[in-house]
Each structure stands twice: as structure tokens, then as C-alpha cells.
């Protein structure tokens, strides 16, 4: 069996007294789209943020393409990695946030070319040429000179995707990428993500877009109260939800007109 893109082993996370992730075990296969679904507060965003080491797991290990992320284990002892070690492992990951998190003082092109210049050390011209190629990919080359405040939410999120792609990561993480958008703007972002999936990008997507999970996802993980209740293909998960908690969860979507899924 080939090495998974991400492997999560016995990961727990607590915030104070609350256990938000309970002993999660998960392998994210390469070249597939894995969707994390579940009700609010189920821990799905926290799990995703642990995969980028934006949250530190309280226990357990996460490996990115076989390399320990954030913590290394040596002689059974857990040691926090240095900033440089962390940056190296993280370079395989691109992260897209619910709130876009574009840098407001830079144009779209500036946002996308930043890491090419500062991390890769490319000159301005080459960095901007490569950044422009990413903006073309998300269909925003005409908006390169615009500041985030001059872009719609959907456009901002597409710039954020281009920024995350700039350093050519092998894995893309999406944290509710369309939740902050007007319904009519979600389509343009989902289309970019669909195109990325078609290219074979490994993607982990926390989403409430059940339709996207069903049509683009290769795997669906259902979390509830910090537990990974199950993990299966969308056909199995949505066509015949056997778990009462999942059935209840999906019913809330049926109310919102997602009947075609069943």
C-alpha cells in the first residue's frame, strides 16, 4: 500500500477542560478529495487545523507524507520541532481559510507572489510571473492589481486559493471555504476546487456543502462531538446512512432542499 498523504494517529485535542478531538485515527489517501463533515462544534475544523499545525494536538501524531508534523517522537518522547523543521514539513501543505485571510495591504498579485519572493527568494519579475499563472488558474488575472477590499468574497477566496497554490504544495486543506460567502458566490469557488480535484490534487475539505462532498469527494468523514464516527465513500455515506446521528444530521440538509442526494 502506498504511503498516505496525511496520517493522523491517536490525535486528541483539548481546550482547557473540553476534549474537542477524541483519539482520532485517519489516513488521507493521495490524489483524493476527503471531506470532513459534521455539525458545528464537532471538531472538524480543529482536526483540519491540526493537520496544518495551526492547532497543536494535545496527544498523538500527525504525519505529512511520512514526516512528523510539529512534534517529533524520539525514544518515546514528544519534542516540539524547531520553526525551520516545521516550515519544511508545512511546505507540502496549502491552507485555505473560511475568512480568506488575505493581506489587505497587498494587491491580489502581491498576496500570491509574497511567498515566492520571501520564501523561495525569487526576484520580483519571476515571482510575479508565476503568481500571475496561479491567478489565471483561478480566473482572476484581470483582478491582479486589485486590493482585497476591492474584490467580492468569492474573488477573495479564489485569490486565497491561488496564494496557497503558489508554492506548489502537494496537499490542499480547505477550512469551510464557502461558509463566509453569499450563496451565489459559492459556485465560483467550488468550481475552482473541482478543477483542482480533477488535476489529482490531494484535498481535505471541511465543508457544509453536502452536494460538493457527494459529487467531488472520494471519502467522507463524519465527526460528531470530537469523534470520528465513520469514514467511507460518499455513495455509502449518503445513500444509506446507517448511523442514527448521521441520519439526523443529513435530515437538516434535506429540509434545505438537498433531496436529490438520496
Amino acid at each position: 500500500m502506498t504511503q498516505p498523504a496525511i496520517s493522523v494517529r491517536n490525535v486528541s485535542k483539548r481546550f482547557g477542560d473540553t476534549l474537542v478531538l477524541k483519539d482520532i485515527n485517519l489516513e488521507v489517501p493521495r490524489g483524493q478529495v476527503s471531506c470532513l463533515i459534521g455539525p458545528s462544534g464537532s471538531g472538524k475544523s480543529t482536526l483540519l487545523r491540526c493537520m496544518a499545525f495551526l492547532e497543536e494536538a494535545s496527544a498523538g501524531m500527525i504525519e505529512i507524507e511520512g514526516e512528523a508534523l510539529g512534534f517529533s517522537e524520539k525514544d518515546g518522547k514528544r519534542r516540539r520541532q524547531t520553526a525551520a523543521e516545521l516550515r519544511r514539513t508545512r511546505s507540502k501543505i496549502g491552507m485555505v481559510f473560511q475568512q480568506f485571510n488575505l493581506w489587505p495591504h497587498m494587491t491580489a498579485l502581491g498576496n500570491v507572489s509574497m511567498a515566492l519572493r520571501r520564501v523561495r527568494g525569487l526576484g520580483r519579475k519571476e515571482a510575479e510571473a508565476r503568481a500571475m499563472a496561479q491567478l489565471v488558474k483561478v480566473g482572476l488575472e484581470a483582478r491582479a492589481g486589485h486590493y482585497p477590499s476591492q474584490l467580492s468574497g468569492g474573488q477573495q477566496q479564489r485569490v486565497a486559493i491561488a496564494r496557497a497554490l503558489a508554492l506548489e504544495p502537494t496537499i490542499m486543506l480547505f477550512d469551510e471555504p464557502t461558509s463566509a460567502l453569499d450563496p451565489e458566490l459559492t459556485g465560483e469557488v467550488l468550481n475552482v476546487m473541482r478543477a483542482l480535484a480533477d488535476e489529482g490534487m490531494t484535498m481535505v475539505v471541511v465543508t457544509h456543502e453536502i452536494g460538493f462532498a457527494a459529487s467531488v469527494g472520494n471519502n467522507v468523514c463524519f465527526l460528531d462531538h470530537g469523534q470520528l464516527l465513520f469514514h467511507d465513500t460518499p455513495e455509502t455515506v449518503f445513500a444509506a446512512p446507517r448511523h442514527p446521528r448521521l441520519e439526523q444530521f443529513l435530515d437538516t440538509y434535506l429540509d434545505r432542499g438537498a433531496q436529490m442526494l438520496r
Partner: peptide, 10 residues
């Protein structure tokens, strides 16, 4: 966090 994720140093 976005800066951390694209590999910028502190």
C-alpha cells in the same frame, strides 16, 4: 496564520 502556512518566518 496564512503567513505561517506559506512558510514565512516569524
Amino acid at each position: 496564520e496564512a503567513a505561517d502556512c506559506v512558510g514565512l518566518t516569524r
